[in-house]
């Protein structure tokens, strides 16, 4: 398993976010995206997930073009973005169970119970989402990626608003996922020191006017 991008260009509005970008995320080596605010870390993760179309370049999984079978690509990835996707009227357990069920998980109660246990929020299982703090919401969101296993994790600042202990839990999970041969791509400002991590530094382009026709 390996996930790679070749010669990627990303344009948002009329701004060139990055161009000619190559990356390779190998199993066992978490790929950490570093760079100042606005340098394109989130955009790169959205491109990798298929939420944002790249202006040029290709993404490959085991050497095969991802664009050829987008359904299979979505089935193999977990994306954690800035928003937590926790429904205020559903309990924590219901939230996690729904996302696991959507990805075809069978034994939802066990999967969700185990995931909540991992993040130490079993006691919140029956609490509705609107009562949660920001950190608890983030934990409920991260619990969903534990509840339904997928090989590729695309994490955008996963440790935002988490306390020190839970940040360590996230670190351990990433290490475990890497050891099991999973692929992790993560944007973070908090140094997590994952053993064997690769770092991709995004410089961030100056805002320049792009001739869209030429770039595409």
């Amino acid at each position: 398993m390996s996930f790679a991008g070749h010669n990627l260009d990303c344009i948002r509005g009329d701004r060139l976010v990055f161009s000619g970008l190559d990356f390779a995320a190998e199993p066992g080596h978490a790929l950490i995206l570093e760079g100042p605010n606005g340098s394109g870390k989130s955009s790169l993760l959205r491109v990798a997930a298929g939420l944002l179309r790249q202006a040029a370049g290709t993404l490959t999984w085991n050497g095969e073009n991802v664009g050829g079978d987008p359904d299979a690509h979505r089935a193999r990835l977990h994306y954690v973005g800035h928003l937590d996707a926790v429904k205020p009227v559903f309990t924590v357990a219901e939230n996690v169970r729904f996302w696991a069920g959507l990805r075809g998980q069978d034994d939802l109660d066990a999967a969700a119970g185990n995931a909540l246990e991992t993040f130490g929020i079993s006691h919140l299982a029956d609490i509705p989402g609107r009562m949660l703090s920001a950190g608890q919401k983030r934990r409920a969101n991260l619990a969903r990626i534990v509840a339904a296993p997928a090989p590729l994790w695309l994490l955008d600042e996963p440790t935002n608003s988490l306390d020190v202990a839970t940040t360590a839990v996230v670190r351990d999970l990433i290490i475990k996922h890497c050891e099991e041969g999973g692929v992790v791509m993560m944007a973070t400002h908090v140094p997590l020191d994952i053993p064997g991590e690769d770092v991709l530094r995004l410089k961030g382009t100056q805002p320049v006017a792009v001739d869209l026709d030429e770039a595409v």
Binding site: A49, G50, L51, D71, R74, A75, L77, Y79, G81, H82, L83, D84, A85, V86, K87, P88, W99, L102, R103, G104
Partner: peptide, 14 residues
């Protein structure tokens, strides 16, 4: 608004 739509778009279902 709460980010669920991104995840629905990214679900394995068409």
């Amino acid at each position: 608004e709460d980010g669920s739509l991104e995840l629905l778009v990214l679900s394995p279902l068409p």
